[in-house]
Nucleic acid binder design. Structure first.
Length: 259
DNA sequence: ATGGTTGCGAAGCAA
Protein backbone atom coordinates (compact mmCIF):
# COMPACT_ATOMS: atom_id res chain seq x y z
CA UNK A 1 0.00 0.00 0.00
CA UNK A 2 1.34 3.40 -1.01
CA UNK A 3 0.49 6.09 1.57
CA UNK A 4 1.19 9.66 0.47
CA UNK A 5 0.90 13.17 1.86
CA UNK A 6 0.96 16.51 0.08
CA UNK A 7 0.39 20.08 1.18
CA UNK A 8 -1.11 21.43 -2.04
CA UNK A 9 -1.46 25.11 -1.01
CA UNK A 10 -5.00 25.42 -2.42
CA UNK A 11 -6.63 22.42 -4.04
CA UNK A 12 -8.54 24.73 -6.36
CA UNK A 13 -5.27 26.07 -7.74
CA UNK A 14 -3.63 22.63 -7.73
CA UNK A 15 -6.33 20.25 -8.92
CA UNK A 16 -4.67 19.63 -12.31
CA UNK A 17 -1.34 18.85 -10.62
CA UNK A 18 -3.00 16.56 -8.09
CA UNK A 19 -4.82 14.62 -10.80
CA UNK A 20 -1.59 14.34 -12.77
CA UNK A 21 0.28 13.13 -9.70
CA UNK A 22 -2.34 10.56 -8.84
CA UNK A 23 -2.03 9.35 -12.42
CA UNK A 24 1.69 8.62 -12.30
CA UNK A 25 2.38 8.07 -8.59
CA UNK A 26 -0.71 5.91 -8.11
CA UNK A 27 -1.10 6.27 -4.34
CA UNK A 28 -3.51 4.00 -2.53
CA UNK A 29 -4.05 6.65 0.11
CA UNK A 30 -3.37 10.37 -0.34
CA UNK A 31 -3.52 12.88 2.50
CA UNK A 32 -3.90 16.50 1.47
CA UNK A 33 -3.33 19.67 3.45
CA UNK A 34 -4.15 23.32 2.83
CA UNK A 35 -7.02 22.58 0.48
CA UNK A 36 -8.38 26.04 1.37
CA UNK A 37 -11.87 24.78 0.49
CA UNK A 38 -15.19 24.39 2.23
CA UNK A 39 -16.57 20.86 2.39
CA UNK A 40 -19.20 21.92 -0.17
CA UNK A 41 -16.52 23.02 -2.64
CA UNK A 42 -14.36 19.91 -2.24
CA UNK A 43 -14.15 18.12 -5.62
CA UNK A 44 -15.15 14.68 -4.36
CA UNK A 45 -16.54 13.71 -7.75
CA UNK A 46 -13.25 14.40 -9.54
CA UNK A 47 -11.58 11.97 -7.16
CA UNK A 48 -14.33 9.37 -7.24
CA UNK A 49 -14.00 9.30 -11.03
CA UNK A 50 -10.36 8.35 -10.47
CA UNK A 51 -11.42 5.57 -8.12
CA UNK A 52 -10.95 7.29 -4.76
CA UNK A 53 -13.31 7.75 -1.87
CA UNK A 54 -12.60 10.89 0.10
CA UNK A 55 -13.16 12.69 3.36
CA UNK A 56 -12.58 16.43 3.73
CA UNK A 57 -12.53 18.81 6.66
CA UNK A 58 -12.46 22.47 5.72
CA UNK A 59 -14.35 25.69 6.19
CA UNK A 60 -13.20 27.70 3.23
CA UNK A 61 -10.40 30.15 3.19
CA UNK A 62 -7.71 28.66 5.40
CA UNK A 63 -6.30 25.25 6.19
CA UNK A 64 -8.45 22.31 5.11
CA UNK A 65 -7.37 18.65 5.13
CA UNK A 66 -8.47 15.54 3.28
CA UNK A 67 -7.92 11.80 2.98
CA UNK A 68 -8.37 10.07 -0.37
CA UNK A 69 -8.38 6.28 -0.57
CA UNK A 70 -8.91 3.58 -3.16
CA UNK A 71 -8.59 0.79 -0.56
CA UNK A 72 -11.67 1.69 1.47
CA UNK A 73 -12.49 4.65 3.66
CA UNK A 74 -14.43 4.24 6.89
CA UNK A 75 -14.98 5.72 10.33
CA UNK A 76 -14.17 9.29 9.39
CA UNK A 77 -13.40 11.68 12.24
CA UNK A 78 -12.97 15.39 11.63
CA UNK A 79 -10.99 17.63 13.96
CA UNK A 80 -9.04 16.96 17.12
CA UNK A 81 -12.11 16.44 19.27
CA UNK A 82 -10.46 18.39 22.06
CA UNK A 83 -12.32 20.99 24.02
CA UNK A 84 -10.62 23.91 22.32
CA UNK A 85 -9.78 22.64 18.84
CA UNK A 86 -9.48 26.36 18.20
CA UNK A 87 -7.25 26.13 15.15
CA UNK A 88 -9.82 24.02 13.36
CA UNK A 89 -9.84 22.10 10.11
CA UNK A 90 -6.34 20.78 10.63
CA UNK A 91 -7.09 17.09 11.15
CA UNK A 92 -9.14 14.38 9.48
CA UNK A 93 -8.83 10.65 10.04
CA UNK A 94 -10.17 7.57 8.28
CA UNK A 95 -9.54 3.84 8.23
CA UNK A 96 -8.17 2.81 4.85
CA UNK A 97 -7.32 -0.80 4.06
CA UNK A 98 -6.83 -1.67 7.72
CA UNK A 99 -4.67 1.35 8.50
CA UNK A 100 -5.85 4.29 10.58
CA UNK A 101 -4.72 7.22 8.43
CA UNK A 102 -4.61 10.75 9.84
CA UNK A 103 -4.09 13.80 7.63
CA UNK A 104 -2.69 16.64 9.72
CA UNK A 105 -1.76 20.25 9.13
CA UNK A 106 0.11 21.78 12.06
CA UNK A 107 -0.10 25.52 12.70
CA UNK A 108 2.79 27.51 11.25
CA UNK A 109 3.63 29.32 14.47
CA UNK A 110 4.82 32.49 12.71
CA UNK A 111 7.36 33.93 15.15
CA UNK A 112 9.02 32.15 18.07
CA UNK A 113 7.45 33.40 21.28
CA UNK A 114 4.33 34.80 19.60
CA UNK A 115 0.82 33.78 20.58
CA UNK A 116 0.69 31.76 17.37
CA UNK A 117 3.84 29.92 18.39
CA UNK A 118 2.39 28.98 21.76
CA UNK A 119 -0.85 27.91 20.08
CA UNK A 120 1.21 25.66 17.81
CA UNK A 121 2.81 23.96 20.80
CA UNK A 122 -0.59 23.54 22.42
CA UNK A 123 -1.94 22.02 19.21
CA UNK A 124 0.80 19.37 19.33
CA UNK A 125 -0.08 18.59 22.94
CA UNK A 126 -3.72 18.20 21.98
CA UNK A 127 -2.75 15.98 19.07
CA UNK A 128 -0.81 13.70 21.39
CA UNK A 129 -3.83 13.47 23.70
CA UNK A 130 -6.02 12.80 20.67
CA UNK A 131 -3.86 9.86 19.64
CA UNK A 132 -3.50 8.48 23.15
CA UNK A 133 -7.25 8.58 23.80
CA UNK A 134 -8.25 6.87 20.57
CA UNK A 135 -5.57 4.57 19.27
CA UNK A 136 -3.22 1.80 20.27
CA UNK A 137 0.41 2.44 19.36
CA UNK A 138 0.61 -1.31 18.82
CA UNK A 139 -1.90 -1.00 16.00
CA UNK A 140 -1.63 0.20 12.42
CA UNK A 141 -1.54 4.00 12.54
CA UNK A 142 -0.12 6.50 10.04
CA UNK A 143 0.03 10.18 10.93
CA UNK A 144 0.72 12.02 7.69
CA UNK A 145 0.99 15.66 6.90
CA UNK A 146 2.61 19.05 7.08
CA UNK A 147 3.73 19.12 10.69
CA UNK A 148 5.59 22.41 10.23
CA UNK A 149 8.57 21.18 12.25
CA UNK A 150 11.94 20.09 10.87
CA UNK A 151 12.81 17.22 13.24
CA UNK A 152 16.58 17.84 13.28
CA UNK A 153 19.28 20.06 11.83
CA UNK A 154 19.82 17.56 9.03
CA UNK A 155 16.31 18.42 7.86
CA UNK A 156 17.09 22.05 6.97
CA UNK A 157 19.34 23.59 4.35
CA UNK A 158 21.24 25.81 6.79
CA UNK A 159 20.64 25.51 10.54
CA UNK A 160 22.64 28.68 11.12
CA UNK A 161 20.52 30.78 8.80
CA UNK A 162 17.34 29.49 10.45
CA UNK A 163 18.49 29.81 14.04
CA UNK A 164 15.88 31.49 16.20
CA UNK A 165 13.04 30.98 13.73
CA UNK A 166 10.08 28.68 13.84
CA UNK A 167 10.13 25.07 12.61
CA UNK A 168 13.53 24.42 14.19
CA UNK A 169 13.18 25.61 17.79
CA UNK A 170 13.88 23.24 20.65
CA UNK A 171 10.30 23.45 21.94
CA UNK A 172 8.81 22.57 18.56
CA UNK A 173 11.19 19.67 18.12
CA UNK A 174 10.36 18.48 21.62
CA UNK A 175 6.63 18.66 20.83
CA UNK A 176 7.21 16.51 17.77
CA UNK A 177 9.47 14.12 19.69
CA UNK A 178 6.81 13.69 22.37
CA UNK A 179 4.31 12.87 19.66
CA UNK A 180 6.69 10.25 18.31
CA UNK A 181 7.31 8.97 21.85
CA UNK A 182 3.69 7.85 21.92
CA UNK A 183 4.72 5.31 19.33
CA UNK A 184 5.39 6.76 15.90
CA UNK A 185 8.43 6.43 13.68
CA UNK A 186 9.77 8.75 10.99
CA UNK A 187 9.99 6.13 8.27
CA UNK A 188 11.45 8.36 5.58
CA UNK A 189 14.39 9.33 7.78
CA UNK A 190 14.96 5.73 8.76
CA UNK A 191 15.29 4.82 5.10
CA UNK A 192 17.21 7.92 4.03
CA UNK A 193 19.88 8.98 6.54
CA UNK A 194 21.57 11.41 4.17
CA UNK A 195 21.23 15.23 4.37
CA UNK A 196 19.80 17.48 1.67
CA UNK A 197 16.35 15.88 1.48
CA UNK A 198 13.53 18.36 1.90
CA UNK A 199 9.79 18.54 1.29
CA UNK A 200 9.21 22.32 1.33
CA UNK A 201 10.96 25.19 -0.37
CA UNK A 202 9.98 28.85 -0.09
CA UNK A 203 8.50 30.30 -3.26
CA UNK A 204 10.77 33.29 -2.88
CA UNK A 205 14.32 33.92 -3.99
CA UNK A 206 14.65 30.75 -6.05
CA UNK A 207 14.84 28.62 -2.93
CA UNK A 208 13.87 25.40 -4.72
CA UNK A 209 16.57 25.64 -7.35
CA UNK A 210 19.11 26.67 -4.73
CA UNK A 211 18.22 23.61 -2.63
CA UNK A 212 17.20 25.80 0.28
CA UNK A 213 14.43 23.75 1.84
CA UNK A 214 13.20 21.99 4.94
CA UNK A 215 11.78 18.53 5.57
CA UNK A 216 8.55 19.32 7.40
CA UNK A 217 6.11 16.95 5.64
CA UNK A 218 6.24 13.66 7.47
CA UNK A 219 4.76 10.17 7.37
CA UNK A 220 4.89 8.93 10.95
CA UNK A 221 4.00 5.27 11.39
CA UNK A 222 3.35 3.07 14.37
CA UNK A 223 6.00 0.42 14.87
CA UNK A 224 3.89 -2.40 13.46
CA UNK A 225 3.35 -0.41 10.29
CA UNK A 226 6.85 1.04 10.05
CA UNK A 227 8.22 -2.47 10.20
CA UNK A 228 6.37 -3.20 6.99
CA UNK A 229 7.76 -0.18 5.12
CA UNK A 230 9.63 -1.05 1.95
CA UNK A 231 10.24 2.23 0.13
CA UNK A 232 9.79 5.95 0.58
CA UNK A 233 10.32 9.06 -1.52
CA UNK A 234 9.95 12.80 -1.71
CA UNK A 235 8.80 13.52 -5.25
CA UNK A 236 10.75 16.70 -6.03
CA UNK A 237 9.40 16.58 -9.58
CA UNK A 238 6.01 17.62 -8.25
CA UNK A 239 7.52 20.84 -6.82
CA UNK A 240 8.08 22.01 -10.41
CA UNK A 241 5.59 23.75 -12.67
CA UNK A 242 3.44 21.45 -14.81
CA UNK A 243 2.87 23.37 -18.02
CA UNK A 244 0.63 26.25 -17.05
CA UNK A 245 0.01 24.76 -13.61
CA UNK A 246 2.12 26.39 -10.91
CA UNK A 247 3.50 24.16 -8.19
CA UNK A 248 2.73 24.04 -4.50
CA UNK A 249 5.62 25.09 -2.29
CA UNK A 250 5.57 21.51 -0.91
CA UNK A 251 6.42 18.23 -2.61
CA UNK A 252 4.49 15.02 -1.96
CA UNK A 253 6.02 12.35 0.26
CA UNK A 254 5.03 8.71 0.26
CA UNK A 255 5.82 5.43 1.98
CA UNK A 256 5.12 1.98 0.57
CA UNK A 257 4.14 -0.64 3.14
CA UNK A 258 3.41 -4.35 2.80
CA UNK A 259 -0.02 -4.82 4.34
C1' DA B 1 20.18 41.71 0.43
C1' DT B 2 14.40 43.04 5.97
C1' DG B 3 14.19 41.38 -0.18
C1' DG B 4 11.58 37.73 -2.51
C1' DT B 5 6.46 34.57 -4.25
C1' DT B 6 1.98 32.56 -4.08
C1' DG B 7 -3.29 32.22 -2.95
C1' DC B 8 -7.34 34.40 -1.79
C1' DG B 9 -9.99 37.97 -3.06
C1' DA B 10 -10.16 42.44 -4.14
C1' DA B 11 -6.57 45.15 0.52
C1' DG B 12 -3.91 42.94 3.25
C1' DC B 13 -2.95 38.75 5.50
C1' DA B 14 -0.96 34.11 5.87
C1' DA B 15 2.47 31.13 4.60
Amino acid sequence: MRIATWNVNSLKARIAWVEEWIGYASPDVLCLQETKLSDAAFPAFAFSSLGYESAHHGDGRWNGVAVLSRVGLADVERGLGSKSDSLGCRLVAATCGGVRVISAYAPNGREVGSEHYHAKLEWFAELRDHLASRYDPGGMVALCGDLNVAPADIDVWDPGALSGSTHVSDAERLALAELEAWGLEDVFRQQHPEPGLYSWWDYRDGAFHRHRGMRIDLVLMSRALAGRARFSLVDRNARKALGEAKPSDHAPVFVDVDV
